[in-house]
Design a protein around this nucleic acid. Sequence first.
DNA 1: CCTGAAGAATACGGGTCCGTAACGAATGGG
DNA 2: CCCATTCGTTACGGACCCGTATTCTTCAGG
Lengths: 115, 115
Amino acid sequence: MAVELRAIQSLKLWHDVHLGLVHQGGDLSSRQIAILLTIYLDAPPHTVRGLARKLGVTKPVVTRALDTLGKLDFVARKRDEADRRNVIIQRTVAGALAVERLGDMIIARAKELPR
Amino acid sequence: MAVELRAIQSLKLWHDVHLGLVHQGGDLSSRQIAILLTIYLDAPPHTVRGLARKLGVTKPVVTRALDTLGKLDFVARKRDEADRRNVIIQRTVAGALAVERLGDMIIARAKELPR
DNA sequence: CCTGAAGAATACGGGTCCGTAACGAATGGG
DNA sequence: CCCATTCGTTACGGACCCGTATTCTTCAGG
């Protein structure tokens, strides 16, 4: 289940997946995509400050992205009981499914590329 | 100059490239990306109506995307002299460079992926 | 205790995008 | 010649996002 990827094809892939996202309706900004995938690809725990630092964005960007992603049930927030200043970002079933679907779409579109 | 792409890695790639776009500043919406790449990957001529139809979006979306892309000098508009109702969308040097850089970034990020 | 620092959230002002609807220019058949 | 149709743009209202600055809570050290 692997596909090859070359220069012009990578652009076609980028095009196709973005178009798929537009039609699917789940339209997130580049920052939100990066934040969501960091949460699901990097090892927990994740905090607002940690994500902001790791991704090189400001904290309000992370807070607002979590608001949006939370509305979609893609992530959940939980107070850190050890240090109640921190907020732990948790994964959700819906979020895991969405990320998995994205991965499937990328692979599917990649396989449809002309040889 | 080809890389292999598998499921989890495709997500990491998606993450890395989006993060690169955030830091690079060139932040376009999914619709705008799809429109820009269609202009540069599909054979001309391109019109507003044609792009809207091909991508399954409304005409105002295309018009506004062209406004934004035009401000960046990534595309240019030209009246069709044969039928002056039509607008022909033309590629530009700056746009071609931007698309090429995007392709390079995707490949570069893909090659950095863990084997 | 009390105070300074840290973490996250919120307020504010500005910008951009969307969808629907309305508009003006241009065309071509009757 | 007109008038319906086509094409692209613009207007409007609403939603979202950003960066900076500020607020609120919580922690920790003196």
